[in-house]
Amino acid sequence: MQDFYERLIIKFANFTVMEIRKFTACLTRNAVEILNYFQTLRTNAILEGSNSKISITKSRARGFKNMSNFMNMIYFVCGELSLPLLPIIESAGEIKGQSQHDWLQNIP
């Protein structure tokens, strides 16, 4: 694969069209990454997706109280975790007429 890539770059470098020469310079600059893709068939798309989720979480919150809270939210968002939906707990410690223990037993 590397031999083919090198021959392609040499062939493109001899073109007189400036756009193809610019493309050849781009291929030369990124040769390691391009060849790694064809050897491993892996990209960093999953990492970029996680980074995007973290950036959205950070901007949506407009700041976190501390780093621990921020890290917990990253685990929550990137790990695709879900929180159980709990109704508002009344100050007496009961949930809509049931004790908290009884209500939790009814969760599917």
Rank of each mutant, 00 (worst) to 15 (best):
M1L: 13
M1N: 09
Q2I: 15
Q2T: 14
Q2D: 07
D3T: 11
D3Y: 13
D3V: 13
Y5I: 00
R7L: 12
I9E: 01
I9S: 00
I9D: 00
I10K: 15
K11I: 10
A13D: 06
N14T: 15
T16W: 04
T16E: 14
T16S: 15
V17L: 11
M18I: 12
M18H: 14
E19R: 11
E19Q: 10
E19G: 08
E19W: 04
R21E: 01
R21H: 09
F23I: 05
T24D: 00
T24I: 04
A25S: 04
A25M: 04
L27H: 02
L27Q: 00
T28P: 02
T28K: 11
N30Y: 04
N30E: 14
A31G: 05
A31S: 07
A31F: 02
V32W: 08
V32L: 11
E33D: 10
N36F: 06
N36H: 10
N36A: 04
Y37Q: 02
F38Y: 08
Q39N: 06
T40A: 05
L41S: 06
R42Q: 02
R42V: 02
T43E: 02
T43M: 00
T43H: 08
N44Y: 02
A45I: 04
A45T: 02
I46W: 03
L47V: 03
L47T: 03
E48C: 00
G49N: 11
S50N: 15
S50H: 11
N51T: 08
N51V: 06
S52K: 13
K53W: 08
I54K: 12
I54H: 06
S55I: 12
S55K: 15
S55A: 12
S55M: 13
S55N: 12
I56H: 12
T57V: 12
K58C: 06
K58R: 15
S59E: 10
R60V: 00
A61H: 02
R62I: 00
R62C: 03
G63M: 03
G63A: 01
G63K: 03
F64Y: 11
F64L: 00
F64M: 01
K65D: 01
M67K: 10
M67H: 07
S68I: 13
S68E: 13
N69A: 05
F70C: 07
F70D: 03
M71K: 12
M71S: 07
M71I: 14
N72Y: 09
M73K: 14
M73S: 12
I74S: 06
V77E: 15
C78G: 06
C78S: 09
L81Q: 02
L81S: 05
L81F: 01
L83V: 15
P84N: 08
L85C: 14
L86R: 06
I89D: 07
E90M: 06
E90D: 07
E90P: 05
S91P: 01
S91H: 05
S91Q: 10
G93C: 00
E94I: 08
E94D: 10
E94R: 14
K96E: 15
G97E: 03
Q98P: 03
Q98I: 05
S99K: 03
S99M: 00
Q100P: 08
W103T: 10
W103D: 07
Q105L: 12
N106K: 15
I107A: 06
I107Y: 14
I107H: 11
P108G: 12
